[in-house]
Write a protein that binds this DNA or RNA. Structure first.
Length: 213
DNA sequence: GGACTGATCATCT
DNA sequence: GATGATCAGTCCG
């Protein structure tokens, strides 16, 4: 990996701020996944904010459980969950410890290690689709529950870290309703993405599953 | 391009 | 026992 100023780790104070401040500020930052085969580096292009136990759309809404325990821990750590029986999604914990706010990383542009990402994302028809969606992003990086609780905010060579990258000016940041969120949580325009970026995932409204028999 | 549907299981009620 | 911070394949236009 090339050393340069934008490759310095984000300080933990970055994540200690309110989640609605952190979320748009994460756009343009770099996610580094260290694997035995080499690093994969992703530029974050789309995120969603989840505002602790007061947010009906958040996994923390019904309090602390074994699954979401990391959300209630210190900021700058990674919360990984398994959903729909086959996918993983990853978040970065924000706000003061115990607040249980987090930012869902929804999409990104692979800027380094694309060959490694392609091997994990065989269904992708082009490189823009490698990390276009939260489960695709986790798949491309080889992230699963084994990484739940990882400190992404350290200079040490942990398997997953966030680097400074290049923040995106606010006039290039768009926001709108969160994808796939149902009920009262759907009203908040807490999805943020880089305007006109081809790696941003399409919006999908929540669809209730039909009852089986 | 958009609409629709099945896959598949950890987690919570 | 029901559901989900999703994806990929198929059908249609």
């Amino acid at each position: 990996m090339i050393a340069s100023p934008d490759r310095t780790p984000l300080p933990r104070t970055f994540f200690e701020r309110p989640v609605l401040e952190v979320a748009p500020d994460l756009l343009g930052r770099l996610l580094v996944r260290t694997t035995p085969d080499g690093p994969i580096v992703v530029r974050v292009t789309e995120v969603e904010a989840y505002d602790g136990p007061n947010d009906p759309g958040s996994h923390a809404f019904r309090g602390r459980t074994a699954r979401n325990a990391v959300m209630f821990g210190p900021p700058g750590h990674v919360y990984v969950y398994f959903t729909y029986g086959m996918w993983h999604c990853m978040n970065l914990v924000c706000g003061p410890e115990g607040e249980a706010s987090a930012v869902l990383l929804r999409a990104g542009e692979i800027v380094e290690g694309a060959e490694l990402a392609r091997k994990r994302r065989l269904s992708a028809r082009n490189d823009k689709e490698l990390a276009k969606g939260p489960a695709r992003l986790a798949t491309a990086l080889g992230v699963d529950r084994a990484l739940d609780g990882t400190d992404a905010c350290t200079a040490e060579d942990t398997p997953l870290r966030v680097l400074t990258g290049t923040p995106v000016p606010s006039d290039q940041v768009n926001n709108g309703p969160r994808t796939g969120v149902s009920g009262a949580g759907a009203v908040h325009p807490w999805r943020f993405w880089i305007s006109n970026d081809p790696t941003v995932s399409p919006y999908r409204a929540h669809v209730a599953r039909r009852r089986s028999s």
